[in-house]
Design a protein around this nucleic acid. Structure first.
Length: 318
DNA sequence: ACCCAGGACTGAT
DNA sequence: ATCAGTCATGGG
């Protein structure tokens, strides 16, 4: 089936400080690949795209690309100054932000983002990228030059769990299969979710098989542009515990969630992304530190419970 | 061989 | 409402 090919478009946009490398390697997108010359090849709104930075300019090439689409995808229309101005005075966050000031949060297609994060549980980022590639190759339409579009929900709904499992999905195959049928049958509408307030949108997303609180927050943040969503994965949980709760493993997840919500402000999703990328890429971000909690000896009363009650405001010790 | 990975779901307290 | 067990698979 051939479609009329949109004309090849070559665009030049002001980058607004966007750091492509940081943004595209920060665990929010999983279908971009870097060429040997440093340029990035991937997809914007189901259209193939080649993009690279050229000084303060962003050069994008691909069929049917528009200035608006690229701007929206990379969130170049957002007033980052104002967003960062809502951050709290927090030396840790300042360090994280200084590590990659051009890190931005993308506005990706909800369906593919949903799939990516259903597949993300207990997987490393490189493995999620592999799964995304496998799903494209097995179920997507071939665009040419070995490029495969990401299969829509109705396509995956017509597959079988076994075929999905063959894409290295493991136990996630059932989740993705059921989710595809939920979307394909319009039991749940991703378009309608876009119109809902964040809390209700999260509630609806969590009705999808394989979508819990964390994955729902990833979709809200990385697809729907909800900057107040604060996904807490093992890395973010680790860094919060370490930097704000004296590395106490006694602090429960719910407490971390409440802290993040009150501490980082309305754009905490950005704060989360800076922290996530920082601790995963800066060797000096989390110097080895002793673990406090295993103090099961001496005084069976209530030992150093107090230290974990008050979030640490300690400054980073360079 | 061992541990971990951008967790979610289920069933038992 | 909390909590442990379980769920496949590959990288380091």
């Amino acid at each position: 089936m051939k479609y009329p090919e949109p004309p090849q478009v070559s665009l030049s946009l002001f980058s607004h400080g966007l750091d492509l490398d940081a943004t595209l390697t920060s665990g929010q997108s999983f279908s971009w690949k870097q060429e040997v010359n440093g340029h990035w090849r991937g997809w914007i709104d189901r259209r193939p795209c080649l993009i690279w930075a050229q000084g303060d300019a962003l050069r994008a090439v691909g069929p049917g690309l528009t200035h608006e689409a690229v701007t929206r995808y990379f969130a170049l229309d957002l007033p980052m100054r104002e967003i960062f101005a809502t951050f709290p005075s927090d030396p840790w966050l300042e360090k994280a932000q200084a590590f990659s000031p051009g890190l931005r949060i993308l506005r990706q297609e909800p369906w593919e983002t949903l799939c990516n994060f259903i597949c993300s549980s207990l997987k490393q980022i490189t493995q999620i990228e592999q799964i995304n590639h496998e799903l494209r190759r097995a179920f997507g339409d071939e665009i040419g030059e070995g490029l495969h579009s990401f299969p829509d929900a109705s396509r995956l709904a017509l597959a079988t769990e076994a075929k999905l499992r063959a894409c290295r999905l493991g136990f996630r195959a059932r989740h993705l299969f059921v989710a595809a049928k939920q979307i394909a049958s319009s039991e749940i509408s991703l378009d309608r979710i876009a119109t809902l307030p964040t809390a209700e949108a999260r509630e609806q997303l969590m009705r999808i098989q394989g979508v819990g609180e964390k994955v729902a927050n990833c979709i809200l943040l990385f697809a729907y542009g909800r900057a107040e969503a604060f996904p807490i994965d093992v890395w973010v949980e680790r860094v919060l515990r370490r930097l704000y709760f004296h590395n106490s493993t006694r602090v429960k997840h719910e407490r971390l969630r409440a802290f993040a919500e009150s501490h980082f402000g309305p754009n905490r999703g950005y704060a989360q992304q800076f922290l996530f990328h920082w601790i995963r890429n800066d060797p000096k971000a989390l110097p080895p530190e002793k673990v406090t909690p295993p103090r099961a000896k001496k005084k069976a009363a209530k030992p150093s419970e107090k230290s974990a009650e008050t979030p640490s405001t300690t400054h980073p010790s360079s």
